[in-house]
Design a protein around this nucleic acid. Sequence first.
DNA 1: ACCTGAACACCGTTCAAGT
DNA 2: ACCTGAACACCGTTCAAGT
Lengths: 242, 242
Amino acid sequence: VVRSDLGVVPVCAGGCLTLAGIAAQQGPKRATGRRGRPPSLTHAQIAAAALKVSSAPDARGEISMRALARELGVPVMTIYNYVPNKDALYALVLNHILRPVRVPDPEEGSWEDRMRQLQRAARAALAEHGAVTSFRRGGTATEAMRLTEGALSILSSGGLDPEEAALAFASLFTFMLGQIEVDAMTSAADRDSVVALEAGTRTTRLSRDELFEFGFDVVMEGLKVKLQRKRTSGRRARQRSN
Amino acid sequence: VVRSDLGVVPVCAGGCLTLAGIAAQQGPKRATGRRGRPPSLTHAQIAAAALKVSSAPDARGEISMRALARELGVPVMTIYNYVPNKDALYALVLNHILRPVRVPDPEEGSWEDRMRQLQRAARAALAEHGAVTSFRRGGTATEAMRLTEGALSILSSGGLDPEEAALAFASLFTFMLGQIEVDAMTSAADRDSVVALEAGTRTTRLSRDELFEFGFDVVMEGLKVKLQRKRTSGRRARQRSN
DNA sequence: ACCTGAACACCGTTCAAGT
DNA sequence: ACCTGAACACCGTTCAAGT
């Protein structure tokens, strides 16, 4: 496992936290308490029900506490025993979606390949649940942090210094965010194609997946060019100062 | 003015429309009617009030009909004389924001420069009003369509064929969408920096603006590489078939 | 400890009635 | 033609009371 001691503090989904200071903290947190009535719901149950609610035809990817309670067959206020408010509910859902996404190990290919695998897996996990809007509201989900750290360690293993890694991560992250938005927009409209071409007689369509693969290549190739340029200009500056 | 006869049908903010089939249709549409009580509100007034409401500390960039009515000093139902529902309100606001954004003329620089100007202006206009969430709900705003057409004509004037232009547009659009999301996330949190680096002793910060400029370069350079590669592989394929 | 009914302060939108 | 009050079916969350 690559150690990530970049010390980079990325803002990934709204919070500003040092990566070091993040504890696991998942599941009902009174697991050690052992006293009182045992919980009747699991986080997994809640997340599954929430995803079902959010994908209802007229929900627009949103989750209402009351609809969630209905789905769970439980009074509304019961949910507040598991989650302090709606933002935390969105974070719970986001964590549930992202938990199965694996960060590839170093022996699984070049750093470019591993980065592509990671991004592809993360996007697939999010896109599977269509129009979930959990990102702006989800706050700083711990699973998102885990993937961020994974991405940074991949970039680090590719020989990027902390500043380069931060630039690269930010660009990849921004593109990913846009892709997720595109996914949500097109899945909300029940279409698969992002762009349709009508050149002369034939019509070509670009699907969301094709856009993702192409776009990932674009960002990756662009990064190589920009970082290469940054390095040579840095070297030149150093030569001048000698 | 460059004519855009690409025939490309981009999906820009949720709708799937042929660009040709879009009429201007703005302002109160009964401008020719002349009978009955004259309207007491203008679209500009409504948009301005909506933006004020959306930037209230606890609004999270959202607009409520009732808060908007309060701001306008008018009963709630009056708004429905100007807008059929909330989605249309968001579209009205989005149009208001995007209307001042100019598509650069061909003599204003290389196509790369003009594309950067266009993207920069669009992002600035959107970022100015911080956390407006109008994109997923705004549907197909006509001003967004105008800018899309402008972007396509710039790409076309750069010598890109329709398929290339569609790929390029989709990549640029996706990145822009992500950037807007980043802007909204960071402005909601009242921070300016997207990434903070703590390498050894000194801390470097990457602002949203810096991320935008860097990211635009990345996508642009990556596009050049990818399109170049596509062309040579296409030529090779043609040579093989001869 | 975990559960939950009632209540409060909100929503968007329909519908019928006003001028 | 434009305006609007009342009503309907929703929200998230607090608070006090249950076991």
